[in-house]
Amino acid sequence: MDKKLTLSLNSNIIESAKHYAKSNNISLSKLIESYLGSLTKKEEKKSEITPLVKSLSGVISIDDDFDEKEEYTQYLIEKYK
């Protein structure tokens, strides 16, 4: 159910918002509704790990001194020789 809301805003902001809404083919009301919705939206739960990913967990063992950045650098050097 939609309700009316009266806001007091700086006139420059109102004009800028109207221009933005018009250039994006959206009403000013929908623009503000979308913005307020994004501000007040509760964070969604992080996605659950799928059974496939769980089954793959621990398949590869990496040495404690393994340097990912160094290995990637070496990979790029070889790739672009």
Score class of each variant (00 low, 15 high):
M1V: 01
D2T: 01
K3L: 10
L5R: 04
L7E: 08
S8V: 14
L9P: 01
N10Y: 10
N10W: 02
S11E: 10
S11N: 07
S11K: 05
N12T: 03
N12I: 04
I13N: 02
I14P: 01
I14H: 02
E15F: 02
A17E: 04
A17T: 06
H19L: 15
H19S: 08
A21D: 05
A21M: 09
K22G: 06
N24M: 12
I26L: 13
L28I: 06
S29C: 13
K30G: 01
L31E: 07
L31G: 01
I32C: 12
E33Q: 06
E33H: 06
S34H: 07
Y35T: 01
Y35A: 14
Y35W: 08
Y35R: 06
G37E: 15
G37S: 13
S38T: 06
L39R: 04
E44F: 08
E44A: 12
E44Q: 13
K45H: 07
K46S: 13
S47V: 04
P51R: 05
P51M: 11
L52W: 08
V53P: 03
V53G: 03
K54H: 07
S55N: 12
L56K: 11
S57Y: 11
S57R: 12
V59E: 11
V59M: 11
S61P: 00
S61D: 10
I62L: 15
I62D: 07
D63T: 02
D65K: 13
D65A: 08
E68W: 11
E68C: 00
E70A: 10
E70S: 05
T73Q: 14
T73S: 14
Y75Q: 05
K79P: 00
K81M: 09
K81P: 00
K81F: 13
K81S: 10
